[in-house]
């Protein structure tokens, strides 16, 4: 029962009554209890985001610093002839490389003596930037073309859909390799844009079908009858009704972009000046037999991040737009 004063004075626009927050929390709690896997995903996502944001604080060492240790073989009195015979005699320090995990280097060091823990933490930031950036680009561009394609139909739709088919007929990795090769040294921006373009085809396709069904509804017809122009209908009437789908596509594809970027980096065509997990797996696998730590931990990091974003994305899809089940 609503109290009398509430009936008399409805809350002002933009002002949310306190009870609404509690109701939202209660609803979230019930969803969380029902979907345990999704909850795990969200907890992991928050963890990864925290690591990514806090990486400069928690990385402990510079990720590019090459650790050295005193050279046991160093002989200050060695003459040039001995040094030529055994170069180890000449330098007082050598690289502290291939350390197994220990208290100083929590996850060990790589072949250049760099701290693996620091590199994993910095890599988390890259994964998050790439996943979110590419997903955002693909959803926004896909929504625009999906709106145009679905709303106008006809020739525009036909041509746009054939372009989408064309992009999807490429083996994804080949197109990706081609796009990032446009610069001599691919940078972070190019990588994100190329990944986003690849996702554009998929999000256009999904957005188009959702726009098609919304455009057929009576309220769109009513708006048209009332004399609203196509732009107004698209942005004021159709867009708000496909927003949930946009959120679902956005969240569900983050993991896929992280995977794709890992593959790109593994092939040596990832962002050139950044530390990424894919690169770490690639350098780490050279000493797999004797020093597996780098490949193992960076591979695990990829799996964990993709797993987290996948679980969270699936949960969001089931709550917001179950129609997309099986299409993603």
């Amino acid at each position: 029962m609503a109290r009398v004063d509430e009936l008399a004075a409805p809350p002002l626009r933009g002002e949310v009554p306190l009870g609404a927050y509690r109701a939202t929390l209660r609803r979230l709690w019930s969803v969380a209890k029902r979907n345990k896997l999704g909850t795990l995903g969200f907890v992991l996502v928050i963890l990864i985001l925290a690591v990514a944001v806090l990486s400069p604080v928690i990385k402990r060492y510079d990720e590019n610093h090459q650790f050295q240790r005193p050279n046991p073989e160093f002989n200050p009195n060695a003459n040039p002839l001995d040094i030529a015979r055994n170069p180890n005699l000449g330098s007082p320090f050598i690289l502290d490389r291939w350390q197994a995990p220990n208290w100083e280097h929590w996850l060990g060091t790589d072949q250049y003596g760099r701290d693996i823990y620091a590199r994993i933490v910095v890599g988390a930031r890259m994964a998050v930037i790439i996943g979110f950036g590419a997903s955002l680009i693909s959803v926004l561009s896909g929504t625009i073309t999906g709106l145009i394609s679905g709303y106008f139909g006809g020739r525009v739709d036909f041509f746009l859909q054939r372009v989408v088919d064309g992009v999807q007929a490429f083996p994804p990795l080949v197109l990706l390799l081609l796009l990032v090769s446009v610069l001599e040294e691919p940078n972070l921006t190019l990588t994100v844009v190329a990944l986003g373009f690849l996702g554009w085809a998929y999000s256009t396709r999904v957005m188009r079908s959702v726009v098609l069904s919304v455009s057929a509804s009576t309220f769109v017809e009513a708006a048209r009858a009332a004399g609203a122009g196509p732009l107004r209908i698209m942005f004021r009437h159709v867009l708000p009704n496909v927003f949930a789908t946009m959120v679902v596509i956005f969240s569900i594809s983050i993991g896929i972009y992280i995977l794709a970027e890992a593959g790109l980096s593994f092939l040596g065509l990832g962002p050139a000046d950044q530390t990424t997990w894919g690169k770490m797996v690639n350098t780490g696998r050279n000493q797999l037999d004797s020093h597996p730590w780098e490949a193992l931990f960076s591979g695990l990091a990829i799996t964990l991040a993709v797993l987290a974003f996948n679980l969270a994305g699936d949960a969001l899809r089931d709550e917001l737009d179950p129609r997309l089940r099986g299409r993603t």
Binding site: G255, L259, A262, G263, F266, G278, V281, G284, R285, L288, P292, A295, L296, G299, I302, T303, L304, V306, L307, N310, L311
Partner: peptide, 18 residues
């Protein structure tokens, strides 16, 4: 299944090689 979805083929290959 969820593990395999989230792990790139090259990481699985690294694990198998190991």
């Amino acid at each position: 299944a969820i593990f395999n979805v989230a792990t790139p083929a090259f990481v699985i290959a690294v694990l198998l090689t190991l």
